[in-house]
């Protein structure tokens, strides 16, 4: 057990370090902050709304992450496969799941850092008005889980191909599907043909349905369970893909 924790920590540390030795991390952070700010303040009409909340900030996250998270996650396994370091990594005394978890956690931590750097917006609304900080916290938790869900899916697609571009496109498509299943324009369209029960069932698979609950300030066990099982499933699928790739 101790050695598992040490393995996860060592691999995650290496992985996180590799983000910061290249300019990728800094470029990403700047773009992330610019985009979140741009969407919140101009398209989201942050100031014109006249309310002290971060709704206009969080509402764009499912769409922003759709591109930004695969961009961060696409290299996680593709690069190991392309460069051949996977052979090195998996012949060290580690369990494959330790490596999978470590790589996921490192990228997730990086995304968490990016999200944490948006703190000035929290200070701003607190200076301008009197927001519900509990709701804001719930919003952040939801946003982090959303990023984690996309990231786990990207890890999975990244294990499928040695080509990062393929991994990127596959994960965007899968994540888009997870958004659209609960996206209002789509569900409205569906209700014309399908029974409401079916539409609800499809919508229950969507990240947006669960993400919205967090934005209302509610942290519900069912939503947590949804994200946990999505993460668990995607990471499990990653391990199956990696095993099959080796025994091809």
């Amino acid at each position: 057990m101790n050695s598992s924790i040490a393995n996860v920590r060592n691999i995650a540390k290496r992985e996180l370090g590799s983000y910061f030795t290249s300019p990728v991390a800094y470029v990403f952070l700047v773009i992330f902050l610019l985009l979140t700010g741009f969407f919140a303040f101009t398209i989201g009409n942050f100031f014109e709304r006249g309310e002290a909340s971060l709704a206009s900030f969080f509402v764009w996250h499912p769409w922003l992450y759709l591109v930004l998270v695969p961009a961060i996650g696409m290299r996680v396994w593709s690069e190991e496969r392309r460069s051949g370091t996977m052979e090195l990594l998996l012949t060290l005394p580690v369990n494959p799941w330790e490596a999978i978890l470590a790589k996921f956690l490192a990228s997730w931590a990086f995304l968490a850092l990016a999200l944490a750097l948006t703190f000035p917006i929290v200070i701003t609304v607190n200076l301008l008005g009197d927001p519900d900080n509990g709701q804001i916290l719930a919003g952040y938790v939801g946003s982090l889980l959303l990023a984690g869900a996309y990231l786990a899916i990207t890890c999975m697609t990244s294990a499928m191909s040695r080509n990062q571009v393929v991994a990127f496109i596959l994960s965007v498509v899968l994540c888009l599907f997870l958004i659209l299943a609960g996206f209002n324009p789509v569900t409205d369209l569906l209700t014309r043909w399908a029974s409401p029960a079916l539409v609800d069932a499809v919508a229950a698979f969507s990240v947006v349905t669960h993400y919205d609950n967090f934005q209302k300030g509610v942290i519900d066990a069912r939503d947590l369970l949804y994200f946990a099982s999505l993460l668990g499933f995607a990471l499990f699928a990653t391990s199956v893909i990696i095993r099959n790739h080796r025994s091809a």
Partner: peptide, 22 residues
């Protein structure tokens, strides 16, 4: 192919493997 993590320094890479070896 003697693949190594190319974004690390030689020292960093060897330290990483040493840590992984306990």
């Amino acid at each position: 192919n003697a693949a190594c993590y190319s974004d690390m320094s030689v020292h960093g890479f060897l330290s990483f493997v040493a840590e992984m070896r306990g």
